[in-house]
Computed example of a mutant assay.
Amino acid sequence: MGGEATQLPRIDFSGVDPSAPGAGPWAAVRAQVMDALTTFGCFGAHYPPLTPELRASLFDGAVRPLFSLPVETKRRNYYGPDKPFHGYLGGLPGLDAYESLAIIDGPKPEPVRAFADLMWPGGGNAGFW
């Protein structure tokens, strides 16, 4: 891609097995991701297993309610000053609409449930996890 790229890259993840990092085309796709992040800070992802129905259920049932929470609630997701990008990140000067929330060990069920309980005390949000 380099400095002359003018169009947001679209990276094909269809051959990557998320349960086997490092296998198959993983290294090549990782290199594309790193280049896109270095050049643009983002990329478009093509991942056929993520059907429109699954995408809608993820965003409508989990992501929208999560990011609709008050900022004070989202700030509970904090892992300490030694991990500044592992919790809630938002309210950045010049990036008014940017927010992110990280779940350490997110692929594991227990950290996701603990995160849901943190965001929605008193039983969490079963639709989230």
Rank of each mutant, 00 (worst) to 15 (best):
T6I: 14
P21F: 10
L118G: 08
G3S: 15
L37G: 15
R75V: 00
E72C: 01
S14P: 11
W129V: 13
L92V: 07
M119N: 03
Y98E: 02
T38M: 12
T38P: 05
P48G: 12
A5N: 11
L37F: 13
R113W: 10
Q32H: 13
S68T: 01
G44H: 09
L54Q: 10
G22T: 12
R113T: 08
G123W: 07
E72T: 09
P107G: 14
P84Y: 06
A20M: 11
L37R: 11
I11H: 09
R113H: 12
R75M: 05
L66T: 12
R30N: 14
Q32K: 14
R113M: 08
T73F: 03
P121F: 07
L66E: 00
D96R: 09
V16H: 13
W129N: 10
Y98N: 02
A36Y: 04
H86M: 04
M34E: 14
A5P: 05
E4I: 06
P9F: 11
G91Y: 04
A116D: 07
V33N: 13
G41H: 04
P121S: 08
G106E: 08
A116C: 13
V33I: 15
V16T: 09
E72Y: 00
R55W: 06
G122R: 06
Y78V: 00
L8R: 11
E99D: 04
I104Y: 09
L66H: 03
P93L: 06
G80Y: 07
G94C: 04
I11K: 08
A31Y: 10
R64Q: 03
A97Y: 03
A20S: 14
G15V: 09
D96A: 12
Y98A: 08
G22W: 08
E110K: 12
I104R: 11
F115Y: 07
S14W: 08
F115K: 02
A45Q: 13
G106H: 09
K108I: 00
K108D: 12
R113D: 02
L8D: 05
W129K: 03
P65W: 02
R64P: 00
S68N: 13
T73G: 03
F115E: 02
G22I: 10
N77G: 04
P121I: 06
P21Q: 11
M119H: 04
R113V: 12
D12V: 12
H86V: 00
Y79K: 03
